[in-house]
Design a protein around this nucleic acid. Structure first.
Lengths: 188, 188
DNA sequence: AGTAGCATGTAATTCGTTACATGATTTC
DNA sequence: GAAATCATGTAACGAATTACATGCTACT
């Protein structure tokens, strides 16, 4: 995965390993972590594979290796971006991938989001059924936190579905965000 | 982590490796995965450490190893559950931990959630600032998906904060869940 | 002069997955 | 009698973290 995230970052412009890490951190840091210890070896591997290459640049006595993506790299990245349901099991992986959807034709992006939305809806339905089972039960106070993770799972999926519905139409995503007052008001 | 999740499951009652996996899958499967290949070796290690032990039970010609937690295991689990901000960086890890908060005195659970809420709020503030920066920018259509991950990050944090506010007071978590009509209505 | 940030890498280790390998029991 | 599920384990591998190790540059 990280391999393709790196390629994705390099599709924008050449970067040093250090800068790639910063880009990942800033861009999808909430959903995906990349440490130096993983980036540098991967850059080496990508170079061996001919998917990336580097030129050394000097600033005074200071050297840096600026990596850029090769045509083969672009191809590999496009294959990953377009293809494959493999990674789409994890929400984090899907969101990380969607970070690069601007590079996809609108219809394809829409289709991919639609597919994921369907999965999320099916999953949500299963969780709602499970919730119903437990709602009937007694002793709920001693199971409060066990149940609370189920509720949170439902919330998470609902957010995901709401995001899908808005994102596939490229709607204004501000409507997904609760005004702070409402956040407080609904709960407190 | 998985090590402690296993111990946590065993605090309830003895289980076979196979059943532990099912419990994890059913309970926090959305936030944490456990494969057989990780569970069985860990059960071996926990036995070596004296934190768990097993007795063999037979059903006809079929043998199964039922694992139970030892007093040392209970102690180790309690230390993990009560202590440590280490794991609390990842939301998934925090939620997985909170699955066992029923075993904590109310005030301590409340305190732990409160601490996590503060972190989430600080993080949310940073993301909101970043959002403001981008909101002013032009060319927003060609950056739509890059921005959309930021929006989703904000949603995720808002859900987390709402969950914290309700959970620490052991309030009814049904209020966190959107009625299906509203989900559709707000977006479509 | 010192701190923070830029910059690169290796090595050991941890953690976990996947595939392999086997076989019993239950349900249809 | 076939398929699904229960049940346990190993071995090879891969992905990523952490700590280690180094040194420059810019700012204050």
């Amino acid at each position: 995965m990280l391999e393709y995230i790196i390629l994705g970052v390099l599709t924008e412009k050449p970067y040093t390993g250090y800068d790639i890490r910063k880009c990942v951190e800033e861009g999808i840091g909430m959903f995906y972590k990349a440490s130096w210890g993983s980036i540098y070896p991967l850059l080496g591997r990508l170079s061996e594979q001919g998917r990336a290459a580097c030129r050394e640049e000097c600033q005074g006595s200071r050297k840096k290796k600026v990596y850029y993506i090769t045509p083969e790299g672009r191809e590999a990245f496009a294959r990953w971006l377009e293809g494959g349901e493999e990674t789409e099991d994890s929400m984090e992986a899907f969101i990380a991938k969607s970070f690069f959807f601007d590079q996809l034709p609108d219809e394809l992006a829409e289709h991919k989001i639609q597919e994921y939305e369907k999965k999320a809806e099916a999953y949500l339905e299963r969780l709602m059924e499970k919730k119903m089972e437990f709602d009937g039960l007694v002793h709920k106070d001693s199971w409060y936190y066990k149940l609370s993770t189920l509720y949170f799972g439902i919330c998470k999926l609902q957010s995901m579905i709401a995001w899908c519905r808005a994102a596939k139409e490229k709607a204004d995503l501000n409507q997904l965000i609760l005004p702070l007052e409402e956040l407080g008001c609904k709960i407190l």
